[in-house]
Design a protein around this nucleic acid. Structure first.
Length: 894
DNA sequence: TAGGGTTTT
């Protein structure tokens, strides 16, 4: 690294440099050399920064124009480097003493791993949970000499893990938390500048790239639990692959569960791999197949099977806690109910899922023995339940998927992958030997995919693309992702950003608009950012930022199993009859009244308890709202202090128009009962928890459109569909029906129909038709206005023409035949040829004015005959006759 | 008539 830095310093900057004139030259030159010498001694952060500044100075005209000033700048850079070099030496001196717990499996590999870190840029460590990799690897990096020129970053997928791992290492090093080892998660930074090791969420490290694209704060990056393959992890790994090219001194460690390492080996060019076993006790696997059960009339479902599997364990009279994996909350309730009916002695049956009140979740730690925990996937990675000896695995989970074709998010129940099944199996056997009962056949297991598809292949990519554009990382299909996202999903992500007005097409592809640039600064889904920016223009930023914050966190409203009705009743006082968004707003008002703006208020806990709300999520909501407000303030995005809203309905309209700007494709038109038609003709049902469920309005917008057992509209509000046209005319399709000549207005008009995503938002709007279809309008004009003579004002040429035509028509009546006057087509061609492109009264007048007279529109009588009846013939049809001295006018009628 | 789990400038 030292060599590299020396090389890069002066070499890169020599080109284009403009040397100052002597006598300053020698002083200037000396400083340059001094800086080059100091660059590798300094902290990476400063070294990169100084190098950049030096390059700027040298490529400018300053050294020639103002040698004294240039020399002064260089002197300052040199001083910065000296201070930085001292900082680095101090880090060296103060390096903490390290020790490793002997009982951890990874400790045995210590020497080898340290050597590998020294000799390689990337290493991969695969190991099961409990092998100690998360806590020991950062220390090994330190021992290998890392963490001096920059910190050692270690990422975690979950905040709670980042905190506990940091605390654990600090404890092992006998240092106060934050000093040598700290953690940084959203809303909480517990690291001092002199820290050596920083544990942070992967999302947080990703966030840091915005301020420091090369992540020069770190000389080593450990990406822990990389096998989880979240969007953040995949994005981070892609970034790091690029960083390794740009930063020759950077080192990385990727850690992963055993099954998943192949992809990482390939992506990083076969780095050294360490396999660390973490299993302390063996786990036996039994395939608890339907065949091995007493046959019933119907195929038993997985709840049945699970109950039988628990029975099986209980009958063997073995002791030890049981963990059952179920795909859904409902299955958990049913399973718990059925198990309770069995009245097992000394057993406690505990449901467990993320949306449960925290104090109920905590029971899994309080009950020491005889527990049967029935859980969702939350127990697969996020929560570790102590004392589990038996795992019962249905082999199923709800797995989120995003269909780019329909733009709809779904949560189907799907068979889990082999990797996931292994992870579930690993949840027992931590304290003694374990048993894993799989409620499917071994053949079924073997036929399953190795891994769950990474999140990047089943997500909406709008946010990723927005960030990539902001960080100038190029096109997602050219970015070094471990697995590229599907091209179709990328296209859909771009489409969503176009829909939101965040990007526009340019010659070289897409680029951010001003709006998009602002959206990228907000730590929110682009849809939520979009609605905030709209709210600033509509003077309801305060209200919408509360709503956006609510939509970005998990719903703070809880529904405890046994008290669901109570919760519904208590929470109903917040309900707004027309808008679930305003329900959040009402809840916020009540919250503020209670805590008076203090998140630390002791009243918050009581408020949460009284209204069945999650204390943690309420705090999260407060923090997110605060964070959003700060960023908006920094970006100088403020509500226009325009006119105050004079009515509730104006405020309602402003708020919901703003929300709609982010969710324009989530419009829905009422069909019947609780059913709505959504984009592209699909049918969706209101979420039963919505305040609108009992009185569905004719149009709603939904913040969520999600398919579980059916397609639901969740978090909805009444809207006026005309708002959609106003917000997104570029997405509307216009069609025109029944064009007609409007004599009074002197123009052709039609009934306009406006659709968006195939939903008719406006029908029968009377509008001018000429601009839409000039050719058709012209035809109608000629036929109706001229040929049928339907004009309000008088035109001499029309009177004239009409007269001639009447005369010829009279002949037809007399001779009782219809083939004397030329067909109407002739008249049409006559007018059309002379009034090309004219379709209204104004146009007609203009043409006549331009021509100086209306002669060109006067018909020539001789041209109007198909055949000219002989004079003699006509004499037989006089206009009048005299009979007995009286003259009678004759009228002829055919 | 009822949603698996995370994370963020």
């Amino acid at each position: 690294m030292l060599e590299d830095a020396k090389k890069m310093g002066p070499d890169r900057t020599r080109k284009g440099s403009q040397e100052p004139a002597a006598p300053d030259r020698s002083r200037f030159q000396a400083l340059r050399e001094e800086i080059s010498r100091l660059l590798p001694e300094a902290m990476l952060r400063d070294s990169y920064r100084v190098r950049e500044k030096l390059a700027q100075i040298l490529s400018s005209s300053l050294p020639r124009r103002n040698p004294a000033k240039a020399t002064d700048l260089l002197l300052r850079l040199k001083q910065q480097l000296e201070e930085s070099a001292e900082e680095k030496r101090a880090r060296h001196r103060k390096k903490p003493r390290l020790s490793y717990p002997n009982e951890l499996p990874i400790t045995r590999y210590r020497q080898e791993i340290i050597r590998a870190i020294k000799e390689n840029r990337v290493i991969i460590v695969s190991g099961e949970t409990g092998c100690g990799k998360s806590t020991q690897l950062p220390k090994m990096c330190l021992e290998a000499g890392r963490g001096l020129a920059g910190k050692i970053a270690c990422t975690q997928p979950r905040r709670i893990a980042a905190m506990t791992i940091a605390m654990r290492i600090a404890e092992e090093l006998d240092q106060p938390l934050g000093k040598t080892v700290g953690y940084k998660i959203r809303f909480q930074d517990r690291t001092s500048p002199e820290a050596y090791i920083k544990i942070l969420t992967d999302g947080m490290l990703l966030a840091e790239t915005q301020g420091d694209r090369l992540l020069t704060e770190y000389d080593t990056i450990i990406i822990d639990e990389a096998h989880e393959r979240s969007l953040n992890i995949d994005f981070l790994i892609g970034l790091c692959r690029r960083l390794l090219e740009k930063r020759p001194e950077l080192k990385m460690i990727i850690t992963s569960a055993t099954l998943e390492v192949e992809k990482f080996l390939k992506a990083f060019d076969n780095p050294p791999l360490f396999k660390v076993s973490g299993r302390l006790y063996p786990v036996e696997v039994m395939y608890f197949e339907p065949e091995s059960l007493p046959k019933k009339k119907e195929e038993p479902d997985y709840v049945d099977l699970a109950v039988q599997a628990v029975d099986f364990i209980k009958k063997e009279k073995q002791t030890g806690d049981i963990l059952v994996f179920m795909p859904t909350e409902q299955d958990i309730l049913e399973t718990c109910h059925r198990l309770q009916g069995k009245h097992y002695p000394d057993s406690v049956i505990l449901p467990l899922f993320a949306r449960m009140p925290a104090h109920q979740q905590k029971q899994i730690y309080h009950i020491k023995q005889g527990k049967i925990v029935v859980a969702t996937n939350v127990a697969e990675t996020s929560l570790t339940i102590p004392g589990i000896r038996y795992v019962i695995d249905t082999g199923l989970a709800r797995i989120s998927q995003y269909q780019s074709s329909s733009g709809i998010h779904s949560l189907p129940i799907l068979p889990i992958s082999k990797a996931s099944a292994e992870q579930r199996k690993g949840r027992c056997g931590r304290v003694s030997s374990g048993l894993c009962l799989r409620l499917y056949s071994e053949e079924d297991y073997r036929s399953r995919p190795d891994h769950t598809p990474p999140e990047i292949q089943r997500s909406n990519l709008a946010e990723v693309i927005l960030r990539m554009l902001d960080l100038e990382l190029g096109h997602p299909l050219k970015f070094p992702f471990l697995d590229p996202p599907p091209a179709r999903a990328v296209a859909d992500g771009y489409r969503t950003l176009l829909e939101l007005g965040a990007i526009e097409k340019s010659e070289s592809g897409y680029e951010l608009t001003g709006l998009g640039r602002k959206m990228a600064r907000l730590p929110l889904d682009p849809r939520l950012s979009r609605m905030l920016l709209e709210a600033a223009n509509r003077d309801c930023l305060e209200e919408v930022s509360i709503i956006a914050a609510a939509l970005s966190i998990q719903d703070p409203r809880l529904r405890p199993l046994e008290r669901a009705a109570d919760a519904d009743r208590v929470q109903s006082i917040f309900q707004h009859p027309e808008s679930d968004f305003l329900t959040f707003y009402n809840l916020w008002q009540a919250l503020q009244n209670t805590i008076q703006g203090q998140a630390s208020s002791p009243n918050l806990k009581k408020f949460a308890r009284d209204y069945f709300l999650s204390y943690n999520r309420l705090r999260e909501w407060l923090f997110v709202h605060e964070q959003i407000s700060e960023i908006l303030e920094e970006q100088k995005i403020r509500a226009k202090t325009g006119m105050p809203k004079v009515s509730d309905s104006e405020l309602y309209s402003a708020i919901h128009r703003s929300i709609l700007s982010g969710f324009i494709s989530h419009l829905a038109a009422h069909k019947e009962k609780n059913l709505y038609e959504v984009a592209r003709g699909q049918e969706a049902m209101l979420w039963p928890g919505s305040a609108l469920f009992k009185k569905p309005p004719s149009w709603v917008l939904a913040a969520e459109l999600v398919r579980t057992n059916r397609l639901y509209l969740r978090t909805v509000a009444r809207i006026n569909p005309a708002w959609a046209e106003e917000l997104a005319p570029h997405l509307c399709q216009y069609s025109y029906l029944d064009p007609y000549w409007d004599k009074g207005q002197g123009e052709v008009r039609a009934k306009e129909r406006v659709t968006i995503f195939n939903l008719i938002i406006i029908s029968n709007r009377d509008v001018p038709f000429g601009n839409q279809d000039p050719a058709r309008a012209h035809e109608i004009f000629v036929e109706e206005a001229l040929i049928k003579h339907q004009l309000e004002s008088e035109f001499p040429f029309l009177e004239y023409n009409q007269q001639i035509i009447s005369q010829i028509k009279l002949l037809e009546e007399k001779l009782r035949q219809r083939n004397i006057l030329v067909p109407e087509q002739h008249l049409f061609d006559f007018y059309s040829g002379r009034l090309h492109g004219v379709y209204n009264l104004k146009g007609l007048e203009q043409r006549i004015r331009n021509a100086g007279s209306d002669d060109f529109l006067r018909l020539k009588e001789e041209n109007l005959y198909l055949f000219r009846p002989a004079k003699e013939l006509l004499e037989g049809y006089p206009d009048s006759v005299r009979i007995l001295g009286h003259t009678y006018q004759l009228k002829y009628r055919f």
